[in-house]
Design a protein around this nucleic acid. Structure first.
Length: 535
DNA sequence: TCTTGCACCTT
DNA sequence: GAAGGTGCAAG
């Protein structure tokens, strides 16, 4: 991390539109694709995805994380995201710039947040540590960018912001916010889906890719655990300006609380005091607005930071999921992966069902600012399972079963989404649940009773394992992780046909961001996740 | 750990 | 001026 957020002023305007101005894309960093035939070194130096062999229109797409330095800054401390019942925005907000899209082709951009591992964490002794097994994953939900579907030209025109996405810990959330468990680690992901002629993507040739920026991983909390994170948020989030220890704000606030006047103390004095008490703001510690050097050790005044830094926990995949390329440290050159086309021909044999999650989650990230790129990241079910109710899928092992149950809900089926049905797949569209402000949430498929429900079911029939759970291949060895497309297409053919067309067309202007979240219920049952049903 | 009401702030 | 995004602190 170098420029430590000196672009923040431009980057973080909480209320800017979902599409920010182009000039706010300075800190973007190229994405990297999985399965690339190009060597990481070569790719990184060229910063170009070699996807010429693909003809699905997804080749060459690159995603740049905006405000990477800010994300990295948080990541180095151990990013925490507040989750509330009402829903809380993420900060830093997730913004990207995408290049390589066909200007005239329509794409759908979505985000989801998947478990980073299967652990529950606690923050004690100024550090994060594993405290047990993770709670069952919340119902997976997709946040569809409100501009979707839009042409490549549109997406490429400016920064794409997902800042209106909200996180909640309310299992019964009716707003379509992404549901997470407190004290659990998560990894946001971006999906780019090529829309078909109907602005959906249910056709057999639907193509999509997934991008993961390891530095955006975080631990969900109901209240900040690490004071450093609190300070970073306060210093960088405009909405928290009132808590900045600068000027007389803090003193004034304290005085008001105490019901008495306050002495005017120079900002420098306040800062110094803050540093002496462990605040990250030492000297010019306004990190993100300072020079790279300044932000290099913004917490030099902070004591108690154990060797086991939070970010290590965030980055380190579970011991039993060895990082594919442990030699890469955070901050090193990233690998560039290849954007591969989803197609029937691609290997889909059970033995090669390597879930895209089987990639480095945090341990050996590609490089900061660069996303992992998964083309067709949602593995289809293994051969033979495509036409079988997934609930009937046998478990291959107890472990698999456990994982399947645990993460059964957060893996949306992108290949079964269709823009025409978005307005119905939202958790609380008027047409669905107009009378109940808090419709009961059913962790397992409750939507099959209506056309909409059918669609929801179709969308959700996929499990979402923690990213670290399936890292079983070395990204450098690209092609081995190619999406097992045969099954995928089978499913698409089976589930994405005409019924979707019957639904009212997605109307952008009538769909506020909160209604752009698709819930992927746990229908997925505690069965073998499609991507893991190797037997 | 979590919820809630609050003051303060941006948009 | 309204709406809504913040972290704080009490409970």
């Amino acid at each position: 991390m170098a420029n430590g957020g000196d672009q923040f002023g431009l980057a973080e305007r909480p209320d800017s539109d979902c599409m920010d101005s182009p000039k706010e894309t300075k800190q973007e960093h190229p994405s990297y694709t999985l399965n690339s035939p190009v060597s990481p070194q070569t790719a990184s130096s060229q910063q170009v995805s070699a996807c010429t062999a693909d003809q699905n229109g997804m080749e060459g797409i690159k995603v740049f994380l905006h405000d990477k330095e800010l994300w990295t800054k948080f990541d180095e401390v151990g990013t925490e995201m507040i989750i509330t019942k009402a829903g809380r925005r993420m900060f830093p907000s997730y913004k990207v710039k995408v290049t390589g899209l066909n200007p005239k082709t329509k794409y759908i951009l979505l985000m989801d947040i998947v478990p980073g591992d299967d652990h529950r964490y606690k923050f004690a002794d100024n550090k994060w540590s594993v405290t047990g097994k993770a709670e069952p994953a919340m119902p997976g939900r997709l946040y569809v960018h409100p501009d979707s579907p839009a042409t490549g030209a549109h997406w490429s025109r400016q920064l794409i912001s997902f800042q209106k996405l909200k996180l909640t810990n309310n299992h019964l959330d009716p707003f379509g916010h992404i549901i997470l468990n407190s004290m659990h680690k998560y990894q946001p992901r971006l999906h780019i889906v090529k829309a078909d002629e109907n602005n959906g993507f249910g056709s057999k040739n639907t193509a999509f890719c997934t991008h993961v920026f390891p530095e955006t991983a975080f631990i969900a909390v109901t209240s900040y655990q690490n004071h450093k994170i609190t300070q970073l948020k306060i210093e960088n989030n405009p909405f928290a300006k009132g808590f900045r220890g600068s000027d007389d704000n803090e003193l004034h606030r304290m005085a008001k609380l105490q019901g008495k006047d306050y002495p005017v103390v120079p900002r420098s004095t306040v800062r110094q005091r803050a540093c002496s008490t462990g605040s990250p703001f030492s000297g010019e510690c306004r990190g993100l607005q300072g020079s790279p050097e300044a932000v290099g050790s913004p917490y030099s005044c902070e004591n108690g930071l154990s060797s086991g830094s939070p970010q290590e926990l965030l980055r380190a995949p579970p011991a039993h999921y060895p990082p594919p390329h442990p030699h890469l440290q955070h901050g090193q050159q990233p690998q560039i992966y290849h954007c591969t086309k989803r197609k029937v021909e691609e290997n889909c044999s059970s033995g090669n069902h390597q879930h895209p999650y089987k990639k480095p989650f945090t341990g050996s990230s590609p490089n900061e600012g660069e996303s992992y790129y998964h083309h067709s990241s949602y593995p289809p079910p293994p051969p033979g399972l495509s036409d079988i109710p997934l609930t009937d899928s046998p478990y291959s092992s107890d472990m698999v079963q456990r994982q399947a149950c645990m993460f059964a809900s957060s893996e949306p089926r992108l290949d079964e989404l269709n823009c025409t049905s978005w307005s119905y797949t939202c958790p609380l569209p008027s047409a669905m649940t107009p009378m109940k402000p808090y419709p009961p949430y059913t962790p397992h498929p409750p939507y099959s009773s209506s056309p909409q429900g059918s669609q929801l079911s179709a969308i959700a029939h996929q499990n979402s394992p923690p990213l670290g759970e399936h890292i079983d291949y070395n990204p450098y060895q690209s092609q081995s992780s190619g999406p097992p497309s045969q099954s995928s297409q089978n499913i698409q053919s089976r589930q994405l046909s005409s019924p979707l067309r019957e639904y009212p067309r997605y109307t952008r202007n009538l769909s506020p961001p909160l209604y752009h979240t698709l819930e992927t219920h746990t229908h997925i049952r505690c069965g073998v996740p499609e991507w893991s049903a190797a037997s």
